[in-house]
Amino acid sequence: MTANADVLFQPYQLGDLTLPNRLVMAPLTRNRAKPGPLAPYALHAEYYAQRASAGLLISEGTQISRQGQGYINTPGIYSPEQVTGWREVTDAVHKAGGRIFAQLWHVGRVSHVSLQENGASPVGPSAISAKTKTFLENGFADVSAPRALELSEIKQILRDYENAARNAKEAGFDGIELHGANGYLLDQFMKDGSNKRTDAYGGSIENRARLTVEALEAALKVWDKNRVGIRLAPAGVNDAADSNPQALFSHVVKRLDALGIGFIHVIEGATGGARDAVDVDYVALREAFGGTYIANNGYNRDMAVEAVANGHADLVAFGRLYLSNPDLAERFRRNAPLNEPNRATFYGGGAEGYTDYPFLENVNATA
């Protein structure tokens, strides 16, 4: 192994939490929660424990309320049964020597009436439909038209974030990440393409960032600031785009830095797509934030080594590579071949394509 590659396997101090390496397993929606209670169970515990050699695991998106659900069989963290299920997961990860944060999620307008209580409309900052699909019993379907949240309803959403943060602590997570990316609720509020409000949560950049800041403040009532982070995506997703992403995210990152949260997890470019999808200076965002910077989107081993070695990133997150390579850290350490993911098993199902990917064994690899 080259000395340069060693940088990925140096310990990292995230607040008072010591990570053994610089690899992060990114959140991956897999649609395998128990139908009905939407709780994780033994299969999830096995899946996450298999990947516990990552420096840090971040759970799949976990809705903070029934209203926050956007896809079939995604887990929640708002009921006792869900908390119990997640406790089984965190216990398994800790037994395997790992560390795991919960990603707290409200999808906003990216949902379907069949997933909402009493067939209600999804909610968003404005009554603008997202140009995207959701995943239901019979496959992918167009999302339903949303309604704009009333000003009075926002307080309940903030209470939901605080409650979910408290439940995550009860479930044994080591910390939390708020999902502020990928065209979901916080992202929808931040970007002027999806937020046409004229009240305190719309108009100026400061107003559009308000819900994100307040959601983090709600979480900080429960968690030490070093154990709280947020995922951000300056590029537009699901037509939640901004006319001036550099100005928006420069402001947002400065506010997050003032809050003193532990990390920002930044999707550089379009999620799963072009890294230059928008004209954003990610180096400037990194330099504006005094905490940990987690880089994400399209990274491979060599890119990760370079990003950590040159100081661009403290940690690097991998999604699909962790999906099919539970021992990704060891494969990177040995520069070994990687398993290819099976796209047909990404969403829904059981163990196939979830916990049955092979571990590295007796691979002769060049380092």
Rank of each mutant, 00 (worst) to 15 (best):
A120W: 05
E352D: 14
A200C: 09
E206L: 00
V266R: 02
A218I: 13
L19N: 11
A26N: 05
R87D: 00
N118R: 14
M303D: 10
K196T: 14
V110Q: 10
N163S: 14
A336W: 02
A130T: 12
I261G: 06
Q103W: 08
L57K: 12
N31S: 15
N335M: 11
K221P: 00
I58L: 06
G319T: 07
M25Q: 11
A365V: 10
K155C: 00
I294F: 01
K254L: 01
P122N: 09
G85E: 00
P326F: 05
H94G: 06
N31G: 08
A288D: 00
A218R: 15
I205Y: 00
F101V: 01
A141K: 15
A351F: 01
K34H: 12
G273T: 12
F140D: 09
V316E: 00
L211R: 13
K191L: 04
R159V: 10
N138V: 09
L232W: 01
A3G: 12
G311M: 02
S152Q: 13
A92R: 03
E162V: 08
A247G: 03
L57G: 10
K196V: 09
G236I: 03
G290K: 07
P358H: 08
R66E: 12
D199C: 10
T198P: 04
Y357C: 07
D356H: 09
T198H: 12
D314Q: 13
E287W: 00
R197M: 05
P358K: 07
V113W: 03
A233L: 05
A307K: 04
R343I: 08
S59L: 06
A3T: 13
W86M: 05
A33Y: 13
A127Q: 06
H94V: 08
L216D: 03
N342K: 15
A247M: 02
P75K: 12
N195W: 04
A274V: 08
A45H: 05
T62C: 05
D16V: 12
F101M: 05
A313T: 12
A274S: 14
G291D: 02
D279G: 10
G124L: 07
G203E: 01
V308Y: 06
L185T: 11
G70L: 04
F140L: 12
I205H: 00
E170Q: 15
Y184K: 13
I267F: 03
G260M: 05
R166C: 04
L56E: 07
S324V: 07
L211C: 09
G119H: 06
A5I: 01
Q50E: 11
